[in-house]
Amino acid sequence: MIEDDWWDGTRERRLLVQRCSCGHAQHYPRDLCTRCGGTDLAFAEASGRGSVDSFTVVHRAPSPDVETPYVIARVRLAEGPIMLTRLAGPGPWACDDPVRLGWRPLPDGRHLPIFTKDA
């Protein structure tokens, strides 16, 4: 599955976006290009840079083992796609804040991409 290839990249701490032969970059991984509908897609490594597009601070935990508050954001990657992710580090946060990629390890060896402020 396409998603498996993306998650395999996180094991090596590589953030991958899909690129179509038409030049369009997209995230999350799909079978078709969201611009042209083409199927000539390949993964390319993203720079790990972006900016905060929108965010919210969560104060109510979805389960008792989740520590609050935490910040969920839409980050526009330098390559163009928007990624739903978590912001880490001190606030306050604002839209258009520059961010850079970081990683949070998962128990199975994969890593979850998160973003921190880019000074």
Results as ranks from 00 to 15, higher is better:
residue 1 M to K: 14
residue 1 M to G: 15
residue 2 I to T: 08
residue 4 D to V: 13
residue 4 D to K: 15
residue 5 D to K: 14
residue 5 D to F: 13
residue 6 W to I: 04
residue 6 W to L: 10
residue 9 G to Y: 11
residue 9 G to C: 15
residue 10 T to E: 12
residue 11 R to V: 04
residue 11 R to C: 01
residue 11 R to D: 02
residue 11 R to H: 04
residue 13 R to E: 15
residue 13 R to Y: 05
residue 13 R to G: 01
residue 14 R to P: 00
residue 14 R to H: 03
residue 14 R to L: 06
residue 15 L to G: 14
residue 15 L to S: 14
residue 16 L to H: 08
residue 17 V to G: 07
residue 17 V to K: 10
residue 18 Q to A: 12
residue 18 Q to H: 09
residue 20 C to I: 09
residue 20 C to V: 10
residue 21 S to T: 15
residue 23 G to T: 14
residue 23 G to P: 14
residue 25 A to C: 14
residue 26 Q to Y: 06
residue 27 H to T: 08
residue 27 H to S: 04
residue 28 Y to T: 02
residue 28 Y to R: 02
residue 31 D to L: 08
residue 31 D to H: 08
residue 32 L to F: 14
residue 32 L to P: 10
residue 33 C to K: 11
residue 33 C to L: 10
residue 34 T to I: 12
residue 34 T to Y: 12
residue 35 R to Q: 15
residue 37 G to R: 07
residue 38 G to M: 10
residue 39 T to P: 03
residue 40 D to R: 08
residue 40 D to I: 06
residue 43 F to I: 12
residue 43 F to Y: 15
residue 44 A to G: 11
residue 45 E to Q: 12
residue 46 A to K: 03
residue 48 G to F: 05
residue 48 G to N: 02
residue 48 G to E: 06
residue 49 R to F: 04
residue 51 S to H: 09
residue 54 S to W: 08
residue 55 F to Q: 00
residue 57 V to F: 07
residue 57 V to K: 07
residue 58 V to A: 10
residue 59 H to I: 10
residue 61 A to D: 12
residue 61 A to Y: 11
residue 62 P to T: 02
residue 63 S to W: 08
residue 65 D to L: 04
residue 66 V to F: 14
residue 69 P to G: 13
residue 72 I to W: 01
residue 73 A to H: 00
residue 74 R to Q: 09
residue 74 R to T: 00
residue 75 V to I: 09
residue 75 V to M: 03
residue 75 V to G: 02
residue 76 R to W: 03
residue 76 R to K: 11
residue 77 L to G: 07
residue 79 E to R: 04
residue 79 E to H: 02
residue 80 G to V: 03
residue 81 P to S: 10
residue 82 I to T: 12
residue 82 I to R: 13
residue 83 M to Y: 12
residue 84 L to R: 11
residue 84 L to Q: 13
residue 86 R to C: 07
residue 87 L to M: 05
residue 88 A to N: 00
residue 89 G to Q: 04
residue 89 G to H: 03
residue 89 G to T: 01
residue 89 G to V: 02
residue 90 P to K: 15
residue 90 P to W: 01
residue 90 P to N: 11
residue 92 P to C: 13
residue 92 P to N: 15
residue 93 W to G: 01
residue 95 C to L: 03
residue 96 D to P: 05
residue 98 P to R: 00
residue 101 L to I: 03
residue 102 G to I: 01
residue 102 G to L: 05
residue 105 P to R: 04
residue 105 P to W: 03
residue 106 L to W: 08
residue 108 D to N: 08
residue 109 G to I: 07
residue 109 G to A: 06
residue 109 G to D: 04
residue 110 R to H: 13
residue 111 H to Y: 12
residue 111 H to F: 14
residue 113 P to H: 03
